[in-house]
Amino acid sequence: MTTPMVKFDNVTKRYGSLTVLDSLNLEIAPNEKVAIIGPSGSGKTTVLRMLMTLERINDGVIYVDGEPMTHMEKNGALVPASERHLRRVRGNIGMVFQHFNLFPHMSALKNCMEAPIHVLGLPRVEAEERAAELLDMVGLGDKKGHYPSQLSGGQQQRVAIARALAMRPKVMLFDEVTSALDPELVGEVLQVIRRLAKEHSLTMLMVTHQMGFAKEFADRVCFFHSGKIAEQGAPEDLFNNPREERTQQFLSAVLEAG
């Protein structure tokens, strides 16, 4: 068996007395596309945020590409990771947010050049070339000089995808990236993600309420319920023949809402 690209090993996350994730075990293979579904508050966002190191974990270890990320080895034991260690491993991961979080004081192109220049140390010319290529790929070749405030939600989200890709991550995280969009703009963003999944060897984790998209996009669907994976499997199985009652209830409620 190959080394998993991402591995949650008994990871627990608490906010005060509230246990949000309860001894989570999850392995994701290189290049695998995983969709995460589940009711609001079940811990889906928290999974991605822990993997992006936006949240510290309370227990367990997260591994990325075979290497502990939340911890590092010291004299044969695992100790909590230093900022330096975190920065090294975190470079493997990119994230796209529900609310885009573009830098409002920079053009689309500059948004995509900032980190490659100042974090990866790419020469400006090369960073610009890469940024322009990626903006072309997400269909915004003619909007390079636009500021976020001059772009529609769908366009902003596509810039955000290009910006994350510019760092050449191995793992991409998408947290409900179409939830803040007007319905007619959802398609253009999903189209970009579809292309990414086909044309790039990326490991992808996607929290979504778009069941139709999850079905065609994902190799595996994980259904979260109260901080645990209640059921997981291939999309055909999970959507067509859910075994758990909670899954059935959730799916019928979502289908009801359309």
Partner: peptide
């Protein structure tokens, strides 16, 4: 979200 985007881009 601006801080979080910065972390996601691995900025110190």
């Amino acid at each position: 979200g601006q801080w979080e985007a910065s972390v996601a881009l691995n900025m110190p």
